[in-house]
Amino acid sequence: MFEPIKFATKGGGDATGEMVAPEGEGRAPAVVLIQEWWGLNGQIRDIAQKLAKEGFVVAMPDLYHGRWTVDAEEAAKLMNALDWPRALDEIAGAAAFLASHPRSNGNVGIIGFCLGGALSFAAATKIPELKAVVPYYGLPPAGSVDYTNVKAPILAHFASQDEWARADLAQKLQAEMNGRGQSMELHVYEAGHAFSHEARRDVYVPEAAKLAWSRTVAFLHKHLG
């Protein structure tokens, strides 16, 4: 069952979101789940429920602060208007909230899709406490983050036919990071952008989505406990 949460941002401000936990009362690994450009909607809640069933405590910061949409033009406006420093501050706050939550084992990872994938990469450069990072088809704007700061292992999922989050740029980043001794595992699927979005039958690729998900769950359990 989802519950609303309030937590402090890294800078000491106030932030809100939602949380879901596995059944039972024991401690579990924790994951910050970052929305797509649509906002905190049903699709992201479905993913949160799937993560909870796999044994993870999940927090979803509401980066659009109550707004969401099903219209692509409006989603683009919301994404382009996003205050990235503030969003990363809120994501860091959500990670700290989970690390100290009584249901958490203290190990926190992050997973994000589309816009959330880009923010997951960016968060990895700003939150050294993260233990695992799983971006789906998203990259921050070129030159906007310093990847040399990344400490956590990364598992990235990209699509071969995606002009928004290009696989060749992800492959270049992987070579750079691995060359520095950082850990970035990359999988490129024969699909287009948002191939894991089950509600969008125009782009959903079941085989790729299932394989990416199984890899994601195994990776998170490996690094978060």
Rank of each mutant, 00 (worst) to 15 (best):
R86D: 10
H101W: 13
A94K: 02
D46G: 02
Q35N: 02
G24D: 06
G26N: 15
H65N: 13
I34P: 01
E25Y: 08
E25T: 09
G93Y: 08
E73D: 15
L78H: 01
I44L: 15
S104W: 12
E90L: 15
A96C: 06
Q35C: 03
V31I: 15
Q43A: 13
I44S: 03
E73K: 11
K53Q: 15
A75Q: 05
V57M: 13
L98M: 13
P61Q: 08
L51E: 04
W38H: 12
A96Y: 11
A52F: 11
E25H: 11
A81L: 02
E23Y: 02
V31L: 10
G42K: 15
E74K: 07
L82R: 13
E23I: 00
Y64R: 14
E36D: 03
L82S: 12
V31S: 00
G66Y: 15
R103Y: 08
V70I: 13
A72T: 09
G26Y: 15
D46C: 05
S104N: 08
L82G: 10
V70W: 03
F97Y: 06
A28T: 03
E23K: 14
W84T: 13
N41L: 09
L88I: 04
G66F: 12
A95N: 00
I34E: 01
M60G: 04
E25V: 04
N80R: 10
A59S: 13
D71P: 01
I47W: 09
K77V: 10
G66R: 14
L98W: 08
A59R: 11
P102D: 08
H65Y: 12
G39R: 12
A30M: 09
W38K: 12
P102V: 07
K53F: 08
L78R: 13
P29H: 07
L51D: 01
H65K: 13
Y64T: 11
R67Q: 11
G55N: 12
A72G: 14
A30E: 08
A30S: 15
Q43P: 01
S100Y: 03
E25K: 12
L88G: 03
R45A: 11
W68H: 13
R45Y: 04
A28F: 15
K53L: 07
N80S: 12
A81K: 02
A94F: 00
E25L: 08
R27I: 05
R45M: 07
H101C: 04
F97W: 09
P102F: 06
R86V: 03
L51N: 01
E74Y: 02
L78V: 14
E74H: 00
I91M: 13
G39L: 12
V32I: 04
D46E: 14
E54L: 00
K50S: 10
W84K: 10
A99N: 06
H65I: 06
N41H: 04
E25M: 06
A76C: 07
S100Q: 01
Q35D: 02
W38L: 10
R86I: 01
P61A: 14
T69G: 00
E74M: 05
V31W: 00
L82M: 14
V70P: 00
A81I: 02
R45W: 01
R86S: 08
P85N: 07
A94P: 01
S104P: 00
G24M: 05
V70Q: 06
L51K: 03
D46S: 14
L82T: 08
K77P: 02
G55F: 12
M79N: 02
A76D: 12
G26P: 10
W38Q: 12
E36A: 09
L63T: 04
W68R: 14
A76S: 14
E23M: 05
M60R: 04
